[in-house]
Design a protein around this nucleic acid. Structure first.
Lengths: 126, 126
DNA sequence: ATTTGTTTACGAAGATATTCGTAGATGTTC
DNA sequence: GAACATCTACGAATATCTTCGTAAACAAAT
């Protein structure tokens, strides 16, 4: 049972739910409104559709429903990364890594994490 | 003059043109057909639209037109990476890097390239 | 209990993307 | 040059995504 690919708008909503956890439509909408302008019912409709598609779960026990992401952030990341590496980076994951490191600031701590990870790989190979 | 965002299908075509260089519709279509099935005129139409949008250039001097990507691979990569980091990786580029390294095989040579890059950054900071 | 506000449900319009049939132009082969 | 193949152009159908108006249910406030 493979997850179907979320659309652009759906991804924005998933992003919010991954970050904030289970939320009401209102909460998601407020957050969305910070960077985008759309009516409340638009957000509602999107979330209802996502629920039907199985991208979200919802608790309808009270009048105001509570929605949560039904797909994991990591799984979705993998899916999208794979596609992107394939079509846009000519199949080379390392090319993507270099691009990402080159143009998007990372903290020292994060860079250390990456170094650590590379070291671990190296060790495994011996 | 900002490049408009290519659609999913358009990206596939761009990917082929980046890899193979300037090509005819037929050539692109053959390549596309390996992984997808669509009619020839569908590919043609797509490429015509991309030309109108400015995503492709074309040489129409002979009957069979020759198309080429009008947007750079790198610029497009940046654009898509930024968006993806933002919505799917909670703004953390390093998180994306770790995911990419973790799930997509890279050769030793490529990993060395990445280590080298990290070393360079480290040096710059002192 | 009427007004006011918030919520869900529904349907449909509008926008965008994808697909392909058909026609006409051009080139190729016999 | 007639038959055949290949190409572009065009238009339109189809599919998908996005947006929002409206109505009904419900709750809270006066």
């Amino acid at each position: 049972m493979k997850q179907q690919k979320p659309t652009e708008s759906e991804l924005e909503i998933l992003g919010i739910l991954w970050e904030k956890g289970a939320s009401t439509v209102r909460e998601v909408h407020e957050k969305l409104a910070e960077t985008k302008d759309a009516g409340y019912t638009t957000t509602l409709k999107l979330m209802q559709i996502m629920y039907e598609k199985g991208l979200l779960t919802r608790d309808a026990s009270s009048k105001t429903h509570i929605y949560a992401a039904a797909v994991s952030q990591q799984e979705t990341q993998q899916q999208l990364l794979s596609k992107m590496i394939d079509t846009v980076f000519g199949g080379s994951a390392s090319q993507l890594v270099l691009q990402a490191l080159g143009h998007h600031k990372s903290s020292d701590k994060e860079l250390d994490q990456i170094r650590q990870y590379l070291n671990d790989i190296e060790k495994q190979q011996r």
